[in-house]
């Protein structure tokens, strides 16, 4: 029962730290609305972690056939999708203040939309299969392939393009001074803990609803 409060205090502290650090420089430019970077970047990293966990628990389900692994896989994918939407929206706000438009089909934006589409398809697939075991198998398989697409489109794709193809700052915060680095990683840890809490919670509801379905059938 301690964990939720640790998360609560940690994330609150993270928000305060994010607002307190000095300006960040991207080349000669001073980034406006830099505070969003301490929310947007951790959200994006937590999203990758969520999809990694979804695929990992998918593999666990395929190996062990424990329904709780499938519930955890579902939970991480769902929370990851929410984080992905948040990262997209905060990224669009950041793009508006720094590049002048909410949406410009920047490679990074293309990548995150591809990821969103992949996971939307994942939920569509889960809804379309009736048999419980078959549903979990197909979900796990698609979650694993979906991870490949997510990694490719958010991390690989942009780096394979010429340097001037994206406006997205690549290593600005990470390579800046120690205070910014600390603020960033503090927030990353905070939001990953939040992710774990939310996903565990979601999987408990999923298990309970599965139990209720079984009772209904019995």
């Amino acid at each position: 029962m301690v964990f939720p409060f640790v998360v609560g205090i940690w994330v609150t502290a993270g928000i305060l730290i994010g607002f307190a650090v000095p300006p960040i420089h991207d080349g000669n430019l001073i980034l406006r609305t830099r505070q969003i970077a301490f929310f947007h970047v951790p959200m994006a990293i937590a999203m990758e972690v969520a999809f990694l966990m979804a695929a990992w628990y998918g593999i666990s389900w395929l190996r062990t056939r424990q329904p709780r692994y499938d519930a955890l896989s579902l939970a991480y994918a769902e929370v990851g999708t929410v984080f992905c939407v948040i990262a997209t929206i905060t990224g669009a706000i950041f793009a508006r203040t720094n590049w002048g438009a909410y949406w410009s089909w920047d490679p990074q934006q293309v990548g995150i939309v591809t990821t969103l589409l992949t996971y939307a398809a994942l939920f569509a697939l889960r809804g379309a299969v009736e048999d419980e075991d078959k549903k979990r198998n197909l979900w796990a398989v698609y979650a694993i392939i979906g991870l490949i697409v997510a990694i490719f489109s958010t991390m690989v794709y942009r780096r394979l393009l010429p340097d001037n193809a994206t406006l997205h700052p690549s290593n600005t915060v990470i390579t800046s001074d120690a205070l910014n680095k600390f603020a960033l990683w503090f927030n990353v840890i905070g939001y990953i803990m939040l992710l774990v809490w939310m996903a565990k919670l979601r999987s408990r509801f999923e298990m309970a609803s599965q139990r209720l379905r079984e009772v209904q059938w019995a």
Binding site: R65, R68, E132, R204, A208, R211, L212, V215, W217
Partner: peptide, 23 residues
């Protein structure tokens, strides 16, 4: 979630005897 788990008598411990472990 805690109330619900108490009502359906379930927790997150593995239950090999479930309907889905049939395979």
């Amino acid at each position: 979630a805690r109330n619900l788990e108490q009502q359906v008598g379930d927790d997150l411990t593995p239950r090999p005897a479930s309907r889905h472990g049939k395979g």
